[in-house]
Design a protein around this nucleic acid. Structure first.
Lengths: 194, 194
DNA sequence: CGCCAACCATACGGCACCGTATTGACAAGC
DNA sequence: GCTTGTCAATACGGTGCCGTATGGTTGGCG
């Protein structure tokens, strides 16, 4: 019994620790206790704590890039549907520790300027994508804020995450409303620039 | 010279520490260094670290209640304008350390179940208020999520907080759109300019 | 003037964690 | 069966923080 651990086992445990207790819970000795080993193992797989944290952040960045590049050619409402589906799937995977949780990373970013810079960059890519799809930068930002708010609140409010489809529909309606709405159909450049 | 410190001085320093570095930065010895005194002072004003944290959270709760009860009778668009004004003022005060920052408290809540429960309660009060005003629970939730997302992102993205008026206008348009929108044409001109 | 309360400094024991060094267990392949 | 590579246990010195104990300084006030 008592299998031995690979680097990936440590990463998974670290992702779960990050998810549940924030960065401050991601500590070699603590995770070692969770895994029922001593830290002798940890320092074989990682140089130090910083190395582990960097691995987590890097993992999140690359996973996210993949998600964005794997999207199909659909834009507008159809595109948003696909994107939200993917995002929801990611959240489920993160709850199993298979991938770092967006929410946890955001929380981390809000207390670490270094992490914040990298998160902001990834975030901007998402917003830009929404802006291209909707042809409306302001709406894109609004949609993103709704999602971000949902994720933030979903960390705290039990059972809220299950209501994601509901919020997703509201977002889609918002997107649809502006296509049919004030300016005529999908007029790129109808928004504002910063 | 070298004035001596009152409890309020410690609280202010703690609010700033919370704002800048999260809960983990709220530590007696660390704040003592910031204040150029030793922790002997701290333990005169507070029982222990937990006591300080509780004071911060309690302060946030009561300040927030006051904000909500001090609102006028306006509802709908006019009410939202007043509310957002108040909220913006609060954010400025929090940056001066006069009151705990919403964003910092939310970040704290996301790593502390105990804090999360209390934050959720206060949060629900805000959402309920919006729901009464708009007569549309789903829209209320959406508006709240936009604000929450903005606050979360505003912690990280430099200069974003200055764009609050812009977001506020978008929220107000959203509220106005549903008055004029799906429900039929009930007077959209009601509640102009506060 | 002298005293008391408010406030702060100093010094201490304890704990949790970091990172390193060294040794030990075990399996795979030669 | 012996070696080698992989992973883990143990033990250690160092640091930062907690909370307490105790004594020092100061200002107001009777």
């Amino acid at each position: 019994m008592e299998r031995r651990l690979a680097r990936e086992d440590w990463l998974r445990a670290a992702r779960l620790a990050l998810l549940r207790g924030g960065v401050e819970a991601v500590r070699p000795e603590k995770i070692a206790r969770d895994l029922q080993v001593t830290k002798g193992s940890f320092y074989w797989h990682f140089r130090n704590r910083e190395d582990l944290l960097e691995a987590l952040l890097h993992e999140w960045e690359t996973e996210l890039e993949e998600l964005l590049t794997e999207l199909g050619p659909e834009t507008g409402e159809a595109g948003l549907r696909v994107l939200l589906d993917r995002v929801a799937a990611r959240v489920r995977r993160s709850e199993r520790g298979e991938v770092p949780s967006d929410a946890a990373i955001f929380t981390w970013a809000s207390v670490s300027p270094k992490v914040a810079r990298r998160v902001n960059r990834a975030e901007q890519a998402r917003i830009d994508l929404l802006a291209r799809w909707s042809g409306n930068p302001e709406l894109a930002e609004l949609l993103y804020l709704i999602w971000l708010g949902f994720v933030t609140r979903g960390q705290r409010v039990p059972g809220l995450r299950r209501r994601f489809p509901e919020i997703a529909e509201a977002m889609i309606r918002l997107l649809a409303a502006q296509d049919a709405g004030p300016g005529g159909t999908n007029d790129p450049g109808a928004g504002r620039k910063s």
